[in-house]
Design a protein around this nucleic acid. Structure first.
Length: 478
RNA sequence: UCCUCUUUAGCUCAGUUGGUUAGAGCACCUGACUGUUAAUCAGGGUGUCCCAGGUUCAAGUCCUGGAAGAGGAGCCA
């Protein structure tokens, strides 16, 4: 059976065809009724024409928004204005009814908050259909980009026995009973009795394992779920999210930046080339949303224009030190408009500073490099100045940090002393250190939050709306 | 975790200074209508006013505590 997407593009008129789908709306008059059907293959619907002289209208009493139907009939050119083709039904089969007293979706605008509460049904809306199709396209584009560039995908472990990544609070994985768990002599939980014989957690990053593979296969990437037990209540954080983490050997931070910029542009181009209908829909949606805003708060570019803008412009690259200078000398800072004024080198940049650089100063994506080592992770390559590390963060308009990466410290002694300085347990890191002992090589990598990429491509503003079933503090429904 | 705001019908929301029977649009039901486009027109009333206390003759409205949601911040991707 053909999908609605295929039927809408076909011109096989006056032939019997069948189509499956769910009812979006039903419109009735005395002698003719119209059913708008969607099967998720495209954002576009097919109109079913029901003539009273061909179909017993009694069946229409059972058909409401949400019902699943099989329609058999003829594909004809439409007399109406909003569609080229439609199906004149000769037979209607109801797979499943949707009781209108109970079915929560109506042919009207629902709030995103309400749709989150019915995440099992929100796929059936135009908006979540579009987002879901784009999400698929972006997953495919990521793999496509790496595959075309000679990368190997590796699966890094979901359950990890090391807690050295330091990327955030972890979720414990255990089979010990919640009550009366075995206890050691000093009163702590005795993890030697646990399934793995030690304390284990869900991974917060596949980076360290990806590095191991890169130091043999040269170019690798992971694309898997990541878990952070941070009590983050924002529109940009999830407790369970998907992360893309490439690692490249024989490479420095510039190769790393080129790779990241190349990947982001490839994904954006892929969306523009392959998701046109859905992007058109999202673009119109955002324009409608902004009609309620005063003129000066509306965005200069619409969604599709924003995506095209990314392709046409190089990301602005500058060091943390240069960024501090710009911020320090900005009118914003001098007029004390920043909540956190920039006074001295070494401070971590706040969201307001990142937004200023991206949205006000450069008005395009920015890559910041060479951060103070104190505010960055232990594995980042130390610069000769003794103060900074070869880190790079990509900041996107409206989203903030979308990529965080670095050249890795490949020198055993420097890495070892940093681990000691930060009191990271050596017993957890022996395998990581060994790669610097045997055939070490300059290498680099980054992490790209997949849902943050989705935010940018879809123009959505809440990360809970670009993943089917968001996991956030106090919410693990579905 | 912190700050701010919100919570009234299935959904989106209004509800004045504390006052009598709790309001609208949409959805739904009934009817009308020769092809509609979130159809239109006429009629029909949905309710634990988030929860628990308190003030008061009287609380949807005021106070205290709690919960959930949203926006912002921190943490980060």
């Amino acid at each position: 059976m053909k999908s609605i997407k295929q039927i809408l593009n076909s011109s096989e008129y006056n032939k019997q065809i069948s189509v499956n789908g769910w009812v979006r709306t039903k419109r009735m008059s005395k002698n003719v009724a119209f059913i708008t059907l969607n099967d998720g293959s495209t954002i576009n619907n097919i109109q079913i024409v029901v003539d009273a002289d061909k179909i017993d209208f009694a069946i229409l009493d059972k058909i409401h928004t949400g019902a699943a139907l099989k329609i058999t009939g003829e594909l004809i050119k439409s007399q109406g204005k909003n569609q080229n083709v439609e199906i004149s039904a000769s037979k209607i089969h109801i797979y499943g009814e949707a009781n209108p007293d109970e079915y929560p979706l109506q042919p009207k605008k629902h709030s995103l908050e309400f749709l989150r509460e019915i995440a099992h049904l929100r796929f059936r809306t135009n908006l979540f259909g579009a987002i879901t199709r784009i999400r698929h396209a972006m997953i495919f584009a990521v793999h496509d980009y790496f595959n075309k560039n000679g990368f190997y995908n590796i699966h890094t472990p979901i359950i990890t026995g090391s807690d050295a990544e330091g990327a955030g609070e972890m979720f414990r994985v255990t089979t010990l009973p919640p009550k009366d768990a075995p206890v050691t002599e000093d009163g702590n939980t005795d993890f030697s009795k646990d399934f793995f014989g030690k304390e284990t957690n869900l991974t917060v990053s596949g980076q360290l394992e990806a590095e191991l593979a890169a130091l043999a296969l040269s170019k690798v990437y992971t694309f898997g779920p990541t878990f952070r037990a941070e009590n983050s209540n924002t529109s940009r954080h999830l407790a369970e999210f998907w992360m893309i983490e490439p690692e490249i050997a024989f490479a420095d931070i510039n190769d790393d930046m080129n790779l990241a910029e190349g990947l982001l542009k490839y994904c954006v181009k892929y969306a523009l080339d392959n998701c046109n209908d859905d992007l058109q829909f999202l673009t119109k949606r955002l324009i409608n949303e902004e009609k309620n805003k005063p003129q000066n708060e509306r965005s200069e570019l619409n969604l599709i224009e924003k995506l095209e803008f990314i392709l046409k412009n190089n990301f602005e690259r500058l060091t943390y030190t240069e960024a501090i200078d710009i911020l320090k000398n900005s009118k914003q800072n001098k007029k004390k408009k920043f909540k956190f004024p920039i006074n001295e080198w070494g401070a971590d940049l706040q969201s307001e500073h990142e937004r200023y650089l991206v949205e006000k100063h450069f008005k395009k994506p920015v890559i910041l490099t060479d951060y103070p080592k104190e505010i960055k992770a232990f594995y980042m390559k130390q610069n000769d100045d003794g103060k900074t590390v070869r880190a790079m963060d990509i900041l996107f308009p409206g989203i903030g940090e979308i990529v965080g990466g670095s050249q890795r410290e490949e020198n055993y002694d420097k890495l070892y002393s940093r681990i000691k300085e930060l009191n990271i347990p050596e017993k957890d890191m022996w395998w990581y250190l060994e790669t610097r002992k045997f055939g070490t090589v300059p290498h680099a990598g980054f992490g790209l939050g997949f849902e943050r990429l989705m935010l940018f491509v879809t123009g959505m503003t809440n990360i809970r709306d670009v993943i089917p079933f968001p996991r956030t503090p106090k919410n693990s429904e579905f």
